[in-house]
């Protein structure tokens, strides 16, 4: 287990989401959903929301947003759902053609196993 560090953030995750732990069954977000900001951050906004809006000026995957925020993906999804409900971001799934060739992926897999 992690030792308590001196640089952990003092705010607990449930305070970011107001106690919610899931974004609901109809959440459009999964790990690779691309998120784009529809507006800039405004004054008085929760700082995570503002950070998301700054991050997603170009389409960004949910998992990447989570990594940049340093938050678990589930929590990030809740924040994104809030923003989506407020109309500040829009979400879309990546096109299938953006995925690399399965052949390449298989070769990567083989290479990894050989390491």
């Amino acid at each position: 287990m992690k030792r308590p560090g001196r640089d952990d953030a003092p705010d607990r995750l449930y305070t970011l989401t107001g106690g919610r732990s899931g974004s609901g069954p109809d959440s459009p977000f999964d790990l690779v959903t691309l998120v784009v900001a529809e507006s800039g951050p405004t004054v008085g906004m929760q700082s995570e929301h503002a950070a998301v809006l700054r991050l997603t000026q170009a389409p960004t995957a949910v998992v990447e947003v989570a990594a940049e925020l340093g938050l678990p993906v589930s929590i990030t999804k809740i924040l994104l759902s809030d923003l989506l409900a407020a109309g500040r971001v829009s979400a879309r799934h990546p096109r299938n053609s953006a995925l690399p060739d399965p052949d390449v992926l298989e070769q990567v897999l083989v290479g990894l196993r050989n390491l």
């Binding site: 389409p59 960004t60 990447e64 940049e68 925020l69 340093g70």
Partner: peptide, 22 residues
């Protein structure tokens, strides 16, 4: 700046993101 320093590079994250796959 818990996350502020993280902000600027992320603007460049999207172009970089697909690259590791390739």
């Amino acid at each position: 700046p818990v996350r502020r320093p993280a902000d600027p590079p992320t603007r460049n994250a999207p172009p970089r993101a697909p690259e590791p796959d390739l």
